[in-house]
């Protein structure tokens, strides 16, 4: 069953990558980044799974899953959220300055 999780995360990662490559809208670029980040976090969490594992909260009713990926992703989620908020703030500033969030037009205005 864990293969399904990996496949899902790879598909989400590809969607995010395609968004970054094909779209010139800066908001969509940031959304693509957020998607890629979520996909990677899903991969990390899934890698800590062991068959028949239970949540790592004592007392265990069987073999517990690996708690380290959970701890890592917990911090990474908050860092990602603040990163994306900062990026969006920069984009709002850019929109004020150039009247556009299109990457091509922003480049066209000021070399």
């Amino acid at each position: 069953m864990i293969t399904l999780s990996y496949v899902t995360s790879v598909i989400i990662f590809c969607i995010g990558l395609y968004t970054i490559m094909a779209r010139r809208n800066l908001f969509k670029t940031v959304l693509g980044l957020a998607l890629m980040e979520s996909a990677i976090l899903l991969i990390i969490v899934s890698s800590g799974y062991i068959p028949g594992g239970v949540p790592p909260i004592e007392p265990f009713m069987g073999p517990a899953v690996n708690p380290l990926p959970h701890a890592f992703t917990l911090t990474a989620i908050v860092i990602g959220a603040s990163d994306i908020a900062l990026a969006l703030a920069f984009i709002i500033k850019l929109q004020r300055h150039y009247r556009s969030v299109d990457l091509d037009r922003i480049r066209g205005l000021r070399g």
């Binding site: 062991i50 909260i57 004592e58 517990a64 708690p67």
Partner: peptide
């Protein structure tokens, strides 16, 4: 494919409640 937890995580799972007093192992690690 992993059948059991290895490395530092195994140590955490085994001793976290004794060394920190917390039941939530993820919280103990964090």
């Amino acid at each position: 494919p992993k059948e059991s937890v290895t490395g530092p995580a195994a140590h955490y799972l085994e001793r976290a409640s004794r060394e920190t007093g917390a039941r939530n192992v993820v919280g103990a690690i964090l």
